[in-house]
Amino acid sequence: MGDPLPSPQRPLDHTPVHTAELPDTPLRDRAIPATAWAEAPASLLALGDDLPDTPVARYVRRIGPWLLWRAGPPRKAEARAWAARADEVDTPAHQAFTFLFAPDGTGDGVGPSGARHTRFRTWKEDLRDTH
């Protein structure tokens, strides 16, 4: 087995997938686009609509009960991360949280605790720590 493909080079796998089938850890050989996720909310499907490069959101991983998706290039570019609880995503009252990446490396997003984060790491820690 060879080395994992860099994220932008992973081919999109359009095979339909349900929430329970989304893996816990990142895929290394392919990417699941939001359009393949049967329960994808409109907010996720539109996540990258205003981005010039890689507008389709790709599945990243689970963080506790949260599903993490990303639209946009992986580094030094405008991009978005989106997270929602797997057990609530198909309910009308589900909440989604977004982290915005700027090309200069800065970021901004409110996590589920209500705290504002300027670092992606602390935003993800907020997901991890909020059940």
Rank of each mutant, 00 (worst) to 15 (best):
R85H: 05
D129Y: 11
H131Q: 09
I63V: 15
D104E: 08
R116W: 13
L68E: 06
P26C: 03
S43T: 15
L51N: 01
A57S: 01
L100D: 10
V89A: 01
H131N: 14
D104K: 03
D126I: 03
D24A: 13
L22N: 11
K124R: 10
T15P: 03
R80A: 07
L5R: 01
L12P: 00
T118K: 08
P41E: 07
G48C: 04
A34F: 00
R85V: 11
S7M: 10
T106W: 04
R80H: 15
L27Y: 04
T122G: 00
P65L: 07
D49G: 10
G114L: 07
A31R: 02
P6I: 00
W123D: 03
T25L: 15
L67C: 09
V110F: 08
L127T: 07
V17D: 01
T98P: 07
R28L: 12
G105A: 09
L100I: 13
G2I: 12
P55S: 05
Y59M: 02
G2L: 13
A38F: 06
I32G: 04
P74M: 01
G64M: 09
T35Q: 15
P92M: 02
S7Y: 08
R30C: 05
R10E: 00
Q9A: 13
A96C: 03
A42Y: 07
Q95E: 11
A34N: 03
W37M: 14
L44V: 09
H94R: 13
D126R: 01
E78W: 12
A31F: 00
T91W: 12
P6M: 02
P41A: 06
G114N: 05
P26F: 01
L27P: 04
P103Y: 14
P112L: 03
A115W: 15
W37I: 15
V110I: 14
A38N: 09
W123C: 03
Y59G: 01
L44K: 09
P112N: 09
D24Y: 08
D50W: 07
H18P: 09
G107A: 05
L51Q: 00
T25H: 12
P33H: 02
A115R: 15
H117K: 02
D13N: 15
P11N: 10
G109V: 05
A83C: 03
R85E: 04
R70N: 02
H131A: 11
T25G: 00
V89L: 12
V17H: 02
D24E: 14
K76T: 08
P74I: 06
P8F: 04
P112Y: 10
R61K: 15
L44G: 06
P23E: 11
D50I: 06
D129K: 11
P103Q: 07
L12N: 00
D3S: 13
G111F: 05
P23M: 09
G2A: 12
G107L: 04
A46F: 06
P92Y: 01
D104W: 07
R10L: 03
L67M: 10
T25F: 14
G114T: 08
A20N: 08
A77E: 07
I63K: 08
A84S: 11
T122N: 10
A36V: 07
D129N: 12
V110K: 06
D126Y: 01
H94A: 11
R70T: 02
H131P: 13
P73R: 14
A86T: 01
L51D: 04
T122D: 12
Q95C: 11
L47R: 05
A20G: 06
G2K: 12
H14Q: 05
G64H: 09
V89Q: 00
